[in-house]
Design a protein around this nucleic acid. Sequence first.
RNA 1: UCCUUGAUAGCUCAGCUGGUUAGAGCGAGUGACUGUUAAUCACUAGGUCCCUGGUUCGAGCCCAGGUCAGGGAGCCA
Length: 505
Amino acid sequence: MVYIKQLSEFEGKEVTLKGWVANRRDSKGLVFINLRDGSGLCQCVADENKITAGEFDQAGKLSLESAVEISGTVVKDERQIGGFEIQVTGLKTIQVAEEFPIAKKEHGIEFLMDQRHLWLRSQRQWAILRIRNTIIYSIHNFFQKEGFMQMDAPIFTGNACEGTSNLFETDFYGDPAYLSQSGQLYGEAMAMAFGKIYTFGPTFRAEKSKTRRHLSEFWMIEPEMAFYDIHQNMDLIENFLQYVIKEVLDKCQAELKLIDRDTSVLESSLNKFPRLTYDEAVAIIKGEKDVNGQNSIKSLEVELAEVEAKMIAIIAEINDRETKIAVPGMKKGEINFNQTKIANLKNDLKDLEESQRNIPQWIESAKNFRYGNDLGGSDETVITRLFDVPVMVYDWPHEVKAFYLKRNPENPRFARGVDVLAPEGYGEIVGGGERETNEQLLRDKIIEHDLPMADFEWYLDLRKYGSVPHAGFGLGLERLVTWLCKLKHVRESIPFPRMYGRLLP
RNA sequence: UCCUUGAUAGCUCAGCUGGUUAGAGCGAGUGACUGUUAAUCACUAGGUCCCUGGUUCGAGCCCAGGUCAGGGAGCCA
């Protein structure tokens, strides 16, 4: 058995492929089968004269997604996707599929999510999840080559890392237990034992968020390094992200092309990441400070004008095409083509209308940003649009950040946290920082945040026995996948997304 | 939780100011066509207009409440 990916090694030879029918067309005496086997796609041509009548009959009856075993000769054909096609010499039906729900046309997102188990078979999903796999693999490669040890934090936790409001509560032999929202505190314990560690596991947040950035269950990578300060932490984040981006660029060209990803921003992200303090970031958001000659507020206003110009152009095109269709005498195929075009244009128009509604809100929120607050989603969007590389923002007002972050010794108003904001409006993909080493300061913070002290005694022990400067960060895998693939929504970045209102399939 | 948009055939949608028997395309089925890349031609089947109540001679359309979904805010990775 041969996989489609290997066909170039078998030119002129006879091979047997096993897979599913991705598409089928027939003419008199010929059946074209687009075979999908998980490794790729390949057209197989069944000619009436080259196979038995029984086989040809079977070929004609193959429905979409039927399973089939095909033998044939590998022929070079530039017109084909993979550059090769199969001249069929033998065909065996494994199963004839019932009518496949996902048709070869546009579908709404709710329908596709209901069909997620089948949607995974489509080319676009295939490419995205292949890229996800490359990302996962290169994350492990990076940390392993850097001497990190992979360790797992527990998923059931008795203590709430940052308050219980957004945790999933479960029953643990009669006691309440929460699904982990971060392995970080455990990561610190493991770093004190092994030096440099990273966790890679699922995380759960019970936020009733309905935005393109949130999942209830997502995968997080959390490195933790003993003897690192915030600057070394930022160096590591930059090296790490650039390694992963480079691997994706090197190994996933075909997949990136399939999903139509313009890779220029990924390439420019191999340059140095700007490091802004919170103060600098706020000045940029409020439009008080320009970046590379660009002003945040002005660039949003320009974008709004562009959106409105595009809307006018699209409306004109829709009208134009509708008038054309209305004239009698147009061929049916051409009418269909135009109708599909119109439907697509209307969808584009809906997206633009969303932007038209959102951008003025973002401008308002940027102008009225109150110093001392955390950055909101739109603020992140505003700032990252001005750069073509990820941006790091560090030294935050300590009130808005987690209790375990270290204060800047030179200016204790600030906590030494760092957020990495992805370009192209994607926002936060990494959150991390240097950890507080002083036991008493931690106790004060725990009280300030109104957290149950008893649950943190084990954590505070780490400050009693060889407490050292240390730092780490958390990377949201799905957010990274979403950005690298330039997806509209995180739900496509994971095989089976779990989010508010979505538990099946 | 709040703001906003929506729910009509298997799918994507149209349905005007409330008016007779609810429409199209795609998909499916049948037939025609020797080279097609979702979108050649003809025919056929296919409907709880999200739910409950109300207004009206008459509701897919108006009103009230609910359910579900899209987008955004908050919160976050």
